[in-house]
Design a protein around this nucleic acid. Structure first.
Length: 439
DNA sequence: AGGCCTTTGAAGTCT
DNA sequence: AGACTTCAAAGGCCT
């Protein structure tokens, strides 16, 4: 699948993005969070297309950009960073951070800041007293090493930095000049002290951060698992343009991250989290088998009701506010993804929907979803309501559970939306084991 | 207290 | 090359 290049006026690239004006803030992305839930990206990043240069579209949206290289940390081309990331020493203090990861959200910064020595490279993000104290209580100055020759030596505190969980000690031995001979124990200690540089957020994560508060506000649901399911559907319901904004933000985030931590690798964080139980990491073959089994024996089962987090008839469960672009764009990601015949599936996002989650429980749930979907489809098609796969199921449905016809016939968005709205049964009803009610 | 759940995407490892 | 795994955020739930 190829998403077209964003149709953005070329003049947009030269707009001054350093001082977000109210005009900038009036964009198509529904930023309706209450002030205290202001997304860290929101204040500084405007989602107007004006800010997305046609020269730097999201990797998967641009056939001109090699998706393989797009995610690889590399020295960003000046034209890619500017004016967002003028990280040269002289200019770094001029530009507000476009991603706004220093802006507090819900009382806390999206990422953490080191104490002292912070030079406020982005004036708009200069820490206030409360932030500063919060930050200084969490970090020690040695945490952030200068990562890039083009960066301030004081170390730009990328939000991704997380303090290592280490007991407080008077003076870090690693800072001692006399530390020439390091014992293995010391080395180990130092490793433990190394700051945990988190992965940059991907597009969906950025979207989640922004929209979570809104969804939570609309729903009585509080569990993130449920919210995330809703957000996942909303994500698929976004127009390509709206998704493109987040892909672009994510791309910039990765660029900045790679500049700040050129030696960082995602591998560095492997093992930082507790490994999940091995038995949950089944092969896809196994998962497909499970799905099929679950499909075949819908009646029996599932450790967990698949709709536990998705109560039907929830207002927040509805697709994101209908956008004209959605209705005008039949070839949405979801729709296109549903078609294996879609050309040029070069992006992971394009292939993923055809892969299964690795979680057995999830697969069981998906199987139930699938069975429910198939059941609903039989009903809907007989009534002529549904000729296509609703977007809400474009991802949750395991490939193996879908009839070939569905996979080869991407739905138009209007049809999908109608199906979605007309078939709440797809969400949960056949398995209405809702544990929470919205109201 | 800490892992699980749940989502998508990026990037790593493995086969 | 493709499949698989891990982590990123979030907060209630569960052990």
């Amino acid at each position: 699948m190829k998403w077209p290049l964003l149709d953005v006026p070329s003049s947009a690239t030269v707009k001054d993005t350093r001082s977000p004006s109210p005009a900038h803030l009036s964009n198509k992305v529904p930023v309706v969070q209450p002030p205290h839930h202001m997304h860290p990206l929101t204040p500084l990043i405007t989602y107007s297309n004006d800010h997305f240069s046609p020269g730097s579209p999201p990797t998967h949206l641009s056939p001109e950009i090699d998706p393989k290289t797009a995610g690889i940390p590399r020295p960003p081309h000046p034209s890619e960073l500017s004016p967002y990331y003028p990280l040269s020493p002289g200019a770094v203090g001029q530009i507000p951070h476009p991603l706004g990861w220093l802006v507090p959200q819900q009382g806390q910064p999206m990422y953490s800041l080191p104490p002292g020595g912070f030079r406020h490279p982005y004036p708009a993000l200069a820490m206030n007293a409360s932030m500063s104290s919060l930050v200084s209580s969490r970090f020690s100055p040695h945490m952030v090493a200068p990562a890039h020759p083009g960066l301030p030596t004081s170390g730009i505190p990328h939000p991704a930095i997380v303090p290592p969980i280490v007991k407080q000690e008077p003076a870090p031995p690693s800072l001692s000049p006399a530390m020439s001979a390091k014992s293995p124990v010391t080395v180990k200690k130092e490793e433990e002290k190394k700051p945990h540089v988190k992965k940059p957020l991907n597009a969906f994560m950025l979207y989640m951060k922004e929209m979570r508060a809104k969804v939570v506000a609309e729903c009585t649901l509080k569990e993130s698992a449920a919210i995330n399911q809703i957000l996942g559907r909303k994500w698929h319901n976004l127009s390509r343009e709206e998704q493109a904004k987040y892909y672009e933000l994510a791309r910039k985030e990765r660029q900045l991250h790679s500049q700040l931590y050129p030696t960082w690798s995602a591998r560095d964080n492997y093992g930082k989290k507790k490994k999940r139980k091995r038995e949950k990491q089944l092969s896809q073959t196994q998962s497909q088998q499970q799905v099929q089994e679950a499909e075949g024996a819908l009646a029996s089962k599932s450790k967990k009701p698949c709709v536990q987090y998705l109560p039907p008839e929830k207002s927040c469960d509805s697709p994101a506010s209908s956008h004209g672009s959605m209705l005008d764009s039949p070839a949405t990601p979801s729709a296109a993804l549903a078609s294996p015949a879609a050309p040029a599936a070069t992006h992971s996002e394009q292939a993923q929907p055809l892969s299964l989650t690795t979680k057995p429980e999830s697969r069981a749930q998906l199987a139930l979803h699938s069975a429910a979907f198939l059941s609903a489809k039989a009903t809907a098609t007989s009534s002529g309501q549904m000729g296509s796969q609703p977007p809400l199921l474009s991802r949750p449905l395991p490939l193996g559970s879908l009839p070939t016809a569905l996979l080869t016939s991407p739905p138009s968005f209007p049809a999908a939306l109608h199906a979605h709205q007309a078939l709440p049964v797809l969400q949960a009803q056949p398995l209405s084991l809702v544990t929470k009610s919205a109201h």
